[in-house]
Design a protein around this nucleic acid. Structure first.
Lengths: 209, 209
DNA sequence: AATTTTTTCAAACGTTCGTATGAATCAGGT
DNA sequence: ACCTGATTCATACGAACGTTTGAAAAAATT
């Protein structure tokens, strides 16, 4: 039996990720999904809410996993602050790990998520903000508790740099393969997570100037 | 006297930066520049080469400044390696500083540059690669000399994170103002450069795992 | 002043976009 | 077998897109 809705979501995810939501037309999507053009509006209402559905399908479980990991660490630490590395790993780990799971969109969705971070379109921005608000509201205090001596100004700048490094890694890790002349392998996700967490935690721990 | 070519470049720069090149139409550009639609094709040939011209106008002097700064540091250091902070400052400083110069596009162009870094479009990617190749070929050896003990794999990962943090800071520093609740001020470019260089150099110096 | 070259302009080209419509087809319950 | 609601389909709509054209206007050259 044929699951039109899922076919559309899969095709849209791939094309949005590869070319950006704005540069992808519904006709390309329905061509890949092998469904009728009107099916998109029947099942999703509009292109914009199709994008929203594509994102939500992966982001909802992803964010749940992030929060669960963080809570697990907090339970393990009692009333002590969770170490910085653990907080960062809970934040970036599930996202980067998702890329190794082809059944859940694999690298494709990660790329799309990275793209949406950088997308100028205000509708997309608002949609993403909504999806990430809960994660932010839990992780920022956790990070602050792990870095009690860091001035707030430095702290927020470094959050900003974290987002940039993470988004770029999500959107275009593949680029690094050729750029590094094959020395870096983006398919080795655990190594990638370790590299990113290691880099970020050193950056966060830099002494304020 | 009216300088059509410059009016088009200015308007295109602003709109490309604000909405992304793909989401900006020629009709929006000529509306802001108050010129005729055909003038774009008369002066630039196509939308794509208009974007190329917009980028080149700022990037050529910007990259020259980066290389000059690096060479100055190398001269000052004799045959010793240039310290990491100095290399990073020569790389990100001119770009971030450009944002304080409204006569040269100010924050607007920086935002566009950040966007183009993340742009999926292959034409744009190729154009940017061309513009940045010389800078990359000079700065990568300089960075490697400043970090002689860092394994190459780690080195290239960290270059990747650097690009992400820098691009995000260029594209959307403004977002940090509200996100930080006013604690960070993206208009203070020197502070921004210092924050970024400080963060990056700590990340680069993190011990390999 | 006449001629040539460069620049501007209004109008249109063909294409593609997201969306809408109404009929055809299918599935499940009665 | 019949009906009913859900889904698919071909087709069309108006709008916007990048690009082209050929003539008018302006500037430069002679």
């Amino acid at each position: 039996m044929k699951d039109t809705k899922r076919d559309i979501l899969d095709a849209a995810e791939q094309l949005f990720a590869a070319k950006g939501p704005h540069a992808t037309s519904l006709r390309q999507i329905i061509g890949r999904a092998k469904v009728n053009l009107a099916a998109v509006h029947y099942h999703f209402g509009s292109k914009e809410s199709l994008l929203q559905s594509v994102m939500a399908r992966r982001l909802v479980p992803l964010n749940a996993e992030r929060l669960a990991l963080l809570e697990e660490q907090e339970r393990a630490c009692g009333r002590r602050a969770v170490p910085l590395q653990k907080v960062l790993a809970a934040l970036v780990g599930p996202a980067l790990r998702l890329s190794r799971n082809p059944k859940k969109g694999g690298a494709v969705f990660m790329q799309l998520l990275g793209r949406c971070f950088m997308e100028p379109d205000l509708k997309i921005q608002a949609m993403l903000d909504r999806q990430l608000q809960e994660v932010a509201s839990r992780f920022i205090p956790a990070l602050q508790r792990a870095l009690p001596k860091l001035p707030e100004e430095d702290f927020f700048w470094r959050i900003h740099f974290l987002v940039g490094a993470m988004a770029h890694t999500m959107a275009d890790a593949e680029r690094l393969r050729t750029f590094s002349g094959g020395r870096c392998n983006p398919d080795d996700t655990e190594a990638m997570i370790e590299q990113l967490v290691n880099f970020l935690s050193a950056g966060f721990k830099a002494k304020s100037r």
